[in-house]
């Protein structure tokens, strides 16, 4: 990917910037100048939450050359609490464990590299949403033996 093309998309790729329509409220990710729902040009820039839910998914076994070393990988449509939808990989889990309805967190990752010498392209991937702190964390740790060597 030529660096100008990558650079232009940094606000949405790095910070999950999206547009919320001032008229109908539809959230478009990445940002759009014209609302695809009502054609309003009265859009407000918002930042999406770093979490969401898997709507549908697939596991890609035959990837394009750039992703050869990563296959098989799960690819999903994720909806954030704001109602924005994005296509992202689901990482850090067995691709076979991904399912519709699964809650995910969005983490900043290296998405692709332009060959051996080109630029590195970053963005977000989904990972299973793990509970954090307190009882939830204690419960998780008690399951450690199940997870280990899974």
């Amino acid at each position: 990917m030529p660096s100008p093309r990558y650079w232009r998309e940094i606000p949405s790729r790095y910070r999950l910037e999206a547009t919320r329509c001032g008229d109908c409220g539809r959230v478009s990710y990445p940002p759009r100048r014209i609302c695809p729902e009502c054609r309003s040009t009265d859009g407000e820039t918002i930042e999406l939450s770093h979490e969401g839910r898997v709507l549908t998914y697939t596991v890609v076994h035959v990837p394009p050359d750039d992703f050869l070393m990563e296959a098989p990988y799960a690819l999903a449509v994720v909806e954030t609490p704001e109602g924005a939808r994005m296509m992202v990989q689901v990482a850090d889990c067995d691709p076979a464990s991904v399912e519709a309805g699964m809650m995910v967190a969005l983490e900043f990752r290296l998405i692709r590299r332009e060959g051996k010498g080109g630029i590195l392209c970053y963005g977000y991937k989904a990972v299973p949403a793990y509970p954090m702190g307190g009882e939830a964390e204690a419960e998780l740790r008690s399951k450690e033996s199940e997870v280990a060597h899974a």
Partner: peptide, 17 residues
């Protein structure tokens, strides 16, 4: 400190060998 995950939760939490 409860506003982000602890180091031990990341060390001992879900992981793949």
């Amino acid at each position: 400190r409860g506003l982000a995950p602890s180091v031990r939760s990341m060390l001992d939490g879900p992981r793949r060998y």
